[in-house]
Design a protein around this nucleic acid. Structure first.
Length: 710
DNA sequence: GAGCACTGC
């Protein structure tokens, strides 16, 4: 292995680190957070942060420039301190508010809690507040510093397009380039141009909007360019600038392979064993791409180490250090996730080996890690606008991602990172950045939101990274098919406008809107089905044996409806029934929450909530047909016909698909015609959540989409 | 008979 030394991005203080505090909040356990400064007062801690040296400079640059791009490492304190500096220096005077956006809910909540504490307030929701889905702690009069998810701010713009109550908006974690953050940057650029030009005209500085964009080193220039409106070569007319904040860092030694490997799993296995047998104490964090890889790796390691231990049993001088193998991925139950944060006693005697997905790259931070093993690959979403299908693919990581991973070594002391590829691969083959999400996503929802915000010409919108035109065109076509856009591409009233505000994909919102009308009469059922399909991890066992009496032959949607109704009639406050039927009780609680929100939206837009099952004049069989017809009205693009070989073919694109083995439709004869909720591509292309339909429903309900076939 | 990176409203 070759070695070079690279300064890493960490510092001694984790108390102010957003990532650490977010994990404390999400797991409700403060004890596992390491705080080397806990003897200092809050003021002393604030002053000891690296960013404090830049306080005056930040405030000066924000007076001079409209947009400030800040490069700051994890833990430098930017997310907690900058909003406070702005507050202290008058940016929140005169009923104005300083806003900081986050890509994730837990981060927004825990940052607000931390800053409220730093301001000496007993609770969040006074001077400092937050707003995320399902939860808001804001005082309309008192709140001056606000944390919010990107998605919530986009939503707020539908009510207040110029966001006049905000004087400064800090877009945090912009380097992650999430779909919502990218859209937000495009929208805020528009708002800033509008507010700042009218500010000049009226000579009223209170109307101007200042932006702070938090970035990693590698893409700061992109953000600078995007927000620099200076058309001349005169640098003094720039409207944006970049400031880099030095963090206190520990060095991380980067080790590369000398020869490329053809099997990164095997290489990962060997590297972990080598570290454990030859390196001094310190936890190991390993990055792999998915659940299955992780579970298999843990099994194999356990077997190998056990073998090693038996061989060494007789030799008292050569005994292997103890170890604890821990998986970490989002599908894991919270109880199992917590284990990676728990103390194992003396870290010199027992080594934690954590095998994780990308969740450990951004969403959670584990202290005590000294060694990082980076397999060099990542599983990401990919979108094919021709078939309209999203899938997950394994691709090489980017430089930016590799640096983030290595930065996870030695948060508390110097560390080592083992990259399982060669240095020349890093230099010449890895892209600087992961492709922004907006360029590999289905954009139907995004387009609908932009239309609702008055962006008529989507193709000309100022995206920081232009999405593929195929994705935009496909999205527009689907929205037209759903009746959300008219012949001129304008939002329809009221259908399109309601759909844009519903917190679901347009396919679901269309189904709900349609289901309340005469001839369907099943909006209650459709809202329940939407809530059930929007929650992950519903079943603790994919095998339906324990739920046999709840299955419905028309398909998965109706089965889900049946499960929900049985859950309600068997005391929704007791987990016993769920346990008995191998249903995740916590997931059902989330279903109730989503369902409640959907019912509130239905109420807001005067969508009648009616149930066909409550109507004595409609038989249960006809009821099932009504619900399935309502589903067709939202999901008609996802229609497929049975083929002689047992596969299915989508009707327009002729795409070959298979019934997923977990579908209840696999338990009986395959129906001729089906509608599916989604496709997952693994060993084959599978349809998940599928119902049987009558083909004439397609012509009846979506004639504009299927007219050519008749 | 297969097996779900991570978020968000």
């Amino acid at each position: 292995m070759t070695t070079n030394n690279q300064a890493n991005s960490n510092n001694t203080t984790t108390l102010f680190d957003k990532d650490s505090s977010s994990s404390s909040s999400s797991f409700g356990n403060e004890n596992f957070i390491y705080n080397s400064n806990q003897k200092l007062t809050i003021q002393q801690q604030r002053i000891s942060l690296p960013i404090y040296q830049n306080r005056k400079h930040i405030l000066y640059l924000l007076e001079k420039y409209s947009t400030l791009v800040i490069i700051g490492n994890t833990g430098c304190g930017k997310s907690t301190q900058i909003p406070q500096y702005l507050f202290e220096s008058g940016w929140a005077d005169g009923f104005r508010t300083v806003l900081c956006t986050q890509p994730r809910r837990v981060a927004a909540i825990s940052l607000a809690e931390r800053v409220a504490q730093e301001l000496g307030e007993q609770q969040v929701g006074k001077t400092v507040g937050y707003s995320v889905r399902f939860d808001e702690k804001i005082s309309d009069i008192e709140t001056r510093i606000k944390y919010m998810t990107d998605g919530m701010l986009i939503r707020e713009m539908m009510l207040d397009p110029l966001l006049l109550k905000y004087s400064v908006i800090m877009i945090d974690e912009a380097h992650e380039r999430s779909l919502q953050t990218d859209i937000l940057m495009g929208l805020l650029k528009k708002v800033q141009k509008k507010r700042n030009s009218s500010g000049e005209n009226n000579n009223n500085n209170n109307d101007t909007l200042k932006l702070i964009v938090s970035s990693a080193t590698l893409n700061a220039q992109d953000f600078f360019n995007f927000f620099n409106y200076n058309q001349t070569n005169d640098k003094s007319k720039d409207t944006s600038t970049i400031l880099s904040i030095e963090g206190r860092t520990y060095p991380v030694d980067i080790h590369y392979l000398e020869e490329p490997t053809s099997n990164y799993i095997q290489q990962t296995l060997q590297t972990i064993i080598d570290i454990h047998l030859t390196q001094p104490p310190g936890d190991i964090l390993v990055f792999l791409t998915g659940q299955e890889e992780i579970e298999r790796m843990i099994q194999t390691l356990d077997d190998k180490f056990e073998l090693q231990r038996q061989q060494q049993q007789d030799n008292k001088n050569k005994q292997m250090m103890k170890y604890l193998l821990l998986p970490m991925y989002s599908g894991l139950s919270i109880n199992k996730q917590i284990k990676v944060f728990e103390s194992v006693g003396d870290s010199k005697k027992i080594r934690k080996i954590i095998i994780a997905t990308n969740i450990a790259e951004t969403s959670i931070t584990i202290d005590g890690v000294v060694y990082v093993v980076d397999c060099g690959f990542v599983k990401i979403k990919s979108y094919d606008s021709i078939s309209g299908l999203e899938s997950l693919v394994i691709v090489p990581t980017s430089k930016s991602s590799a640096n983030q991973r290595s930065g996870r070594a030695g948060r508390n002391r110097a560390g080592k990172c083992y990259r399982l590829y060669t240095e020349s691969t890093y230099d010449t083959l890895l892209p600087d950045q992961t492709i922004p999400e907006i360029q590999r996503s289905n954009l139907t929802t995004t387009i609908l939101q932009l239309k609702a915000l008055g962006i008529d010409n989507i193709l000309n919108f100022d995206f920081i990274s232009q999405p593929p035109s195929g994705s935009l065109i496909r999205g527009l076509e689907v929205l037209y098919g759903l009746g959300a856009l008219d012949d001129n591409g304008r939002l329809t009233n009221p259908t399109g406008m309601i759909m844009a505000e519903f917190p679901t994909d347009p396919t679901f919102s269309k189904m709900i809107v349609q289901s309340s009308s005469t001839g369907f009469n099943c909006s209650e059922e459709c809202i329940t089905i939407t809530a059930m399909l929007n929650i992950q991890g519903l079943f603790t066992n994919q095998n339906h044996k324990s739920r046999k009496h709840l299955l419905v032959k028309e398909g998965d949607h109706i089965t889900l409806l049946n499960i929900f109704n049985s859950f309600i009639s068997n005391n929704p406050n007791s987990s016993h029934w769920c346990h008995q039927h191998q249903i995740n009780y916590k997931a059902m609680q989330r279903v109730l929450q989503v369902r409640k929100q959907l019912l509130a939206y239905a109420n807001k837009y005067s969508i009648k909530v009616i149930s066909c099952f409550d109507d004595p004049n409609i038989s249960p069989k006809n009821c099932s047909s009504l619900v399935r017809k309502a589903i067709v009205s939202g999901f008609f693009t996802n229609a497929a016909q049975l083929q002689p070989d047992g596969s299915y073919q989508t009707i327009r694109e002729k795409h070959k698909l298979w019934l997923h083995p977990t579908s209840v439709l696999c338990l009986s004869n395959s129906p001729q015609w089906v509608i599916f909720n989604e496709v997952t591509i693994t060993t084959k292309e599978y349809m998940k959540d599928v119902i049987s339909i009558e083909p004439n429903w397609l012509y009846e309900i979506a004639p504009h989409y299927y007219k050519f076939k008749k």
